[in-house]
Design a protein around this nucleic acid. Structure first.
Lengths: 203, 203
DNA sequence: CGGGTTCGCTACGATAGCGTATCAAACAAC
DNA sequence: GTTGTTTGATACGCTATCGTAGCGAACCCG
């Protein structure tokens, strides 16, 4: 009896191949039809693989979807430390925007949000993914505080939300166009604030 | 042959009743099981109604879900014009937070986001809903600009996104706790900006 | 090249949902 | 009270999907 979903060392190339085409097909279906659109039979057909082969390697649909999504993720971009907060934030936000619009997994984002609502396993996956994606922002802000570019009492939590929130909002909720240039508008608004300065220095 | 989905004047009380219990059951299912979890048979069973009765009143599942969601919405809060931007924004944001966390339709939000990705009818509904919910923010900012409380060249679009984005982000994406007090943190951050002032007046 | 693994294929019974048809009973409206 | 509408019940055929079983063929590994 084969060991299911072994993490490493699938020595037999047939196994390796099967897993790959199945994950690929699952990802495609996930993107095209959402969480509910992923069926074992659909995956089997698209992968050109027998249903039984899928059941041999994954116990549940959730596990399969989980693995498929994981396989879609690219390693995060290398850390940037330019010493300039504005530049760092814009760089990170641009990466996020790309991730949500043109990356391979971009079309699956909505499906994952909903899936996270119903499947705790998926929810955990999404969470881990987010933490990783948030790291550059956290890092940039922390460094800026150390440099004195940001006030020590800055609300980091709210700041992170205010930087990334608008991006997700456009992507998920309002569905307005989301170009990379939006990054600058958000960052500038974030840094400057909206209120006109009353303590404006002399003209 | 009955006229389907007539908007007004369902004179026969049997019709009125049927429509009500069906919409109620649909809404409950939508909340509990998401878009994909709404089935005609499921609705019929929960509503204590024959399947045929549903088909008599709605042509498609989308239409039914559409109407059910519409029936969940409360009329928006009366407009507030306090003359103080901060207060207006906090008030509006608190309303949004309540809507996304404790309202009747709150549990269905994720499902709707995903449904909007796949069903243009639902997408339009979500859009209309959003526009209505955004109005108070738009209004508050516009008035503040007129009062000179905000700079004339303020990026209204980005501002709206930066105010509401963080809320939706917490609700949909990060799933961190979302209390009404978060409204103040967002608004203050928004108004003040994060950067320490270099033009700080003399100590 | 031989033993053990993995695969594809086919078939199976079970479940769930679809959308339609029919018809008698309940009921509103006048 | 009679009439016309609305409903509930039931049944139907159809499709999709589930998860499992059995088996021979292909294939990897040593």
């Amino acid at each position: 009896m084969p060991i299911l979903t072994e993490p490493e060392a699938a020595r037999d190339p047939r196994v390796t191949r099967s897993r790959a085409v199945i994950l690929q097909a699952t990802a495609e279906l996930l993107i095209e039809a959402g969480f509910a659109g992923v069926t074992i039979e659909g995956v089997a057909e698209r992968a050109g693989v027998a249903k039984t082969t899928i059941y041999r390697h994954w116990r549940t649909r959730s596990q399969l979807i989980f693995d498929a999504f994981e396989s879609l993720m690219e390693p995060s971009a290398p850390r940037l430390t330019s010493g300039n907060l504005r530049a760092d934030l814009i760089y990170a936000l641009r990466g996020l925007i790309r991730g949500l619009t043109v990356s391979r997994w971009a079309p699956a984002v909505s499906a994952l949000i909903e899936a996270g609502d119903r499947d705790p396993e998926v929810s955990r996956l999404v969470h881990d993914f987010l933490v990783e994606r948030m790291a550059p922002f956290h890092h940039a802000i922390q460094e800026a505080v150390e440099r004195g570019e940001l006030a020590k009492d800055v609300d980091i939590d709210a700041s992170l939300n205010m930087l990334t929130g608008p991006i997700y909002y456009r992507r998920l909720v309002s569905r307005e166009p989301l170009a990379e240039s939006f990054a600058e508008r958000v960052v500038d608004q974030f840094l400057r604030g909206a209120a006109t300065r009353r303590e404006e220095p002399a003209r």
